[in-house]
Write a protein that binds this DNA or RNA. Structure first.
Lengths: 336, 336
DNA sequence: CTGTTAGCGCCTTCAA
DNA sequence: TTGAAGGCGCTAACAG
C-alpha cells in the first residue's frame, strides 16, 4: 500500500477526465462545483490517499502558515510554559511553530532569526536574551514584511509590539506582605544593572518602601550577574551587613535557590531568621521543605497566549498598525 | 530601505540583461559561468538584498530541510535537554526543527504527526506518550517516505529505529550501592505495569537482587500511575508493610519528589529512616536539603544527539535500511 | 457549472 | 560560456 509517487491534482483530473482546476475547486468545496462532481473527486482523492502538497501551496500563496519562536532557553520552565500556550494558539489557527533557543548568545539569536527569515515564516514571537544589545534585526524582519511580537524579555524600545508582565504590582504586594509580617529591613537582590527588568524592579521596590514610609538604604540593594557565584556573593554581602535584612525580594526563583542554599549553609534558618519572596519562574517549590514565603507570578502562559494572538492579528492585518504594548499585572502567590 | 517585493532571479536578470538561468547558475557558483559575469551577478544580488525564496526551492527540490520532533512535554527537563542537542545537530546540517508536544495524549500526538506529514518534513524524531498504543502512524509516515527515529520512550517493536537508555546498568549500580550500604530491604516503585519501561526496570531490579542473593518479595514491588496521588499511594503502601523497606528505587525523579514529600509528612527522616535512588530527569536536586542518595542518569542530550544523527543518515540514504537500535548505558550519579 | 491559460521562483535539460 | 524552454503542484482570472 505504499505510494511511490504521491497523488496529485493532475492525476485525479486525468483519471476523472476533468480539468485540474475543477478538481482543485472540488477539493476546496468551491460553491460553483456540482455536488456530484465534488463527490466523485473527493472519493477518488481519498482512494488515492491524496494529500495536497503544502510546499506547492506555500509557494503559490506566498505564505507558510508558520511562525517562529525565539527564546533564551527551553529549560526555563517559564519559557516552556509560554511556548505551550503559543503552540495551542498556533494550532487553533492551523499554524506551525518553529522554535529556536538563543541561549542568551546574540550571535546565535541572529542566526536563528536569519533562518526564520529564509524559511519565510509569517511572523515571529521573541523573548530576547540577556546580552542582546543590537536591535537592528527588527528592521531586517519588518522590512521583509515579517511582523514580530516580543514577550517577557523585551527590548527597551517604544516602536515595537510587546507583551510583558509589569513587575511592579507583584513587588508592591510582596512588600505589603513583608511589612504586615513586621519586617522593616527589606532588601532587594536585583539582576544586572543594565537590564531594563532590573531597573523596573528597583523602581517598584523603592515605590513599595515609600508607600510604607520605610527609608531606602543603598546597602540593601545588591546586584547579581545571575550566575550561581554572583547569587551567592550577593546574599553574603547582605548577610555581612551590621544590621542584616530580615526579608529579601530576589530577582527570580533561580537566584532564590542559590541564595537560600547559601543561607542554609551559613546556619541560618529559612523562614525564621530570614524570609524570601522572589519573582517566579517555576522551580518545584511545592516539593521543598522550606520554600520562599511567596512568589511573584508572571503568568508565562497568559503572556505567550496574548503575544501569539497579537501576532496573528498582525499577520492577518493588511496595514502595518501602531505598535501595541500589553502589560499583565504580576501577582503575589503564597507558597504556604 | 524597505523592499516591498523581495528581489528575484528574474529581476536581477532583467537589470543585467542576462537570462535567469545564467543568474541562477552564477549565484550557485556553477563552473561554466565566467568569472566577471558571476561577479556582476553577485554584486547586484547583494545590492538588492536578494535572498533565494526557500519556499520555491523546497517545492522544486521536493525537500524541506525540516525535521519534526514529537515528544510528551517540553516542561520535562529530560526532553528540553534532548531537544537542545537535536537542535544543535540539525543546525549543523542546516535543517530546521518543528516541534510538537503530545502531552501524552494519543489524539494530539496523531494530529502533530499529521501536521508534520502535510508539511512534508524530511524526517521525524519521536518519543511516544505514556498512553500511546496504536502504532499505525509509523507506516503512515514511512509509506510517505518520511523516516522516523524513536528515542527514550520508544514503541516495543523490533522493526523501528530507536535510541534508548538501557535502564539496567543504572539499576544494578543502584542496588550495588544500596547493598554496600547495608540495605537488604530494597523496594521498587515502578510505573504503569503495561509500560515497556516499567517491565525493563522490574527485570533489572530482580536481576540486581539476584546478583546479591537477596530474595525478591512481591510486596516490595509497587506500581504508580505517575500521578501525584498514585505516587503517594505507592509509598504509603510500602510504608504500611510490617517490615518496611529501608531503600527504594523509584521510577523517576518526579515520583521521587512526591514520594519523599509523603515520607517527610509521615515524620520519617529522609536519608536516615529510608533512602532513595531514582531514575533521573533533572529536578533541582542540588538545591534540596535532602536529595536522594543518587540518580540513575539517562543522558538525554546524548540520546537526542544520537537519534538526530541517525535520522540524518536515514534521510541521506537512498535505500531504506534495516532498523537500527542504539542502547546507551545508564549510569549512577551520586547526589552527595 | 466547468475548462483554458497562465504564473508563482527556481532549476535543469537541451540547444546554440 | 550563455539562452530558451519547460515543469514542479497548485490556484485564480478569465472565458465559455
Amino acid at each position: 500500500m505504499k505510494e511511490s509517487k504521491p497523488a496529485t491534482i493532475k492525476e485525479i483530473a486525468r483519471r476523472l477526465k476533468l480539468s485540474p482546476s475543477t478538481v482543485s475547486r472540488a477539493l476546496n468545496d468551491h460553491p460553483s462545483i456540482g455536488l456530484v462532481t465534488t463527490e466523485r473527486v473527493k472519493r477518488l482523492a481519498a482512494e488515492l490517499n491524496y494529500e495536497p502538497n503544502q510546499t506547492a501551496i506555500f509557494f503559490k500563496q506566498r505564505k507558510t502558515f508558520t511562525v517562529g519562536v525565539v527564546l533564551p532557553s527551553l529549560s526555563e520552565p517559564f519559557f516552556s510554559a509560554a511556548i505551550s500556550e503559543i503552540e495551542n494558539v498556533a494550532n487553533e489557527k492551523r499554524y506551525t511553530v518553529i522554535m529556536g533557543q538563543s541561549l542568551d548568545d546574540p550571535d546565535r539569536e541572529l542566526r536563528i532569526l536569519q533562518t526564520l527569515k529564509t524559511h519565510r515564516v509569517d511572523g515571529v514571537l521573541m523573548s530576547i536574551g540577556k546580552n542582546t544589545q543590537d536591535y537592528r534585526f527588527i528592521e531586517l524582519l519588518e522590512g521583509a514584511g515579517i511582523p514580530i511580537v516580543f514577550f517577557d524579555c523585551v527590548p527597551d524600545l517604544g516602536d515595537v509590539n510587546k507583551v510583558v508582565s509589569d513587575l511592579e504590582s507583584g513587588m508592591l504586594e510582596a512588600i505589603d506582605v513583608f511589612v504586615s509580617c513586621g519586617h522593616h529591613a527589606i532588601a532587594l537582590i536585583n539582576g544586572p544593572a543594565l537590564l531594563p527588568a532590573s531597573a523596573e524592579r528597583k523602581k517598584a521596590y523603592i515605590k513599595g518602601l515609600n508607600q510604607h514610609g520605610i527609608p531606602v538604604k543603598d546597602e540593601y540593594i545588591v546586584n547579581t550577574d545571575l550566575t550561581p557565584e554572583g547569587n551567592e556573593a550577593a546574599i553574603l554581602q547582605l548577610l555581612s551587613l551590621p544590621h542584616r535584612p530580615s526579608a529579601v525580594v530576589s530577582f527570580n526563583d533561580y537566584v532564590a535557590l542559590d541564595v537560600m542554599k547559601a543561607v542554609r549553609q551559613k546556619g541560618l534558618a529559612l523562614n525564621q531568621d530570614i524570609h524570601f519572596i522572589s519573582y517566579a519562574n517555576y522551580p518545584l517549590w511545592k516539593y521543598m521543605e522550606n520554600p520562599p514565603m511567596a512568589s511573584i507570578e508572571q503568568f508565562p502562559g497568559e503572556q505567550g497566549k496574548k503575544a501569539a494572538s497579537l501576532l496573528f492579528e498582525l499577520i492577518d492585518a493588511k496595514e502595518r498598525s501602531k505598535p501595541v504594548h500589553v502589560v499583565f499585572k504580576s501577582r503575589l502567590i503564597s507558597q504556604g
